[in-house]
């Protein structure tokens, strides 16, 4: 027999947990499809200077058969249109992986040959993308992009690790735009 106060407590606890449980469900990849633009602050782990700079960002995520997606992102360092602005664009295709929330490239790279290991995963409302490479000296570099769907668009965090130590962090907000 459960008394009335106990039952009320159980219901209150269940209600307080409900949003957490709802958040824990992974979004389908189609929820991330769209065109996003915004800016971000890049911070270098260098105590000798303030070490930050602004960047403009452009991200496009679109569906690709069979059940995968194409991720394209552009980073502009310096003012777009300026002569010395640096623009870098990267496009990658990810196909469904071994689990519903995991995606991998068409062919995985071999780090021993200087190639990249890449994959993506969805956790809740965030799409994570990882790029790992081993350099000439045998150190490894890991780049992690986390792209969280928000009401207006996307929250981006990028971290670069060199041999396990974080060397760069970029955080930004992007708005969803109509093409």
């Amino acid at each position: 027999m459960i008394g009335r106060p106990t039952r009320a407590l159980v219901i209150a606890l269940a209600l307080s947990w409900a949003p957490v449980l709802a958040q824990a469900e992974d979004r389908p990849i189609s929820d991330f499809f769209g065109h996003y633009v915004g800016s971000a602050m890049a911070k270098t782990e260098d105590s000798r200077s303030l070490g930050f700079e602004m960047r403009d960002l452009d991200v496009i995520i679109e569906g690709a058969e069979p059940g995968g997606f194409v991720l394209s992102w552009t980073t502009i360092r310096g003012r777009d249109g300026d002569k010395d602005a640096k623009r870098k664009t990267r496009t990658m295709f990810f196909k469904p992986g071994v689990a519903p929330n995991i995606f991998g490239p068409e062919t995985q790279g071999d780090p021993a040959k200087g190639e990249e290991v890449a994959w993506s995963r969805i956790d809740g409302d965030t799409l994570y993308t990882y790029l790992m490479a081993v350099n000439e000296r045998g150190d490894y570099e890991m780049q992690m992009y986390s792209r969280q769907v928000t009401k207006d668009g996307m929250a981006l965090d990028f971290e670069r690790f060199h041999d396990g130590e974080r060397t760069r962090k970029v955080s930004g907000k992007l708005k969803r735009v109509e093409d």
Binding site: G97, V98, A99, N101, I102, S120, R121, M142, D163
Partner: peptide, 10 residues
């Protein structure tokens, strides 16, 4: 791992 989280042991 099966959720896509990596681990590097050195």
């Amino acid at each position: 791992d099966e959720t896509g989280i990596y681990s590097v042991q050195s």
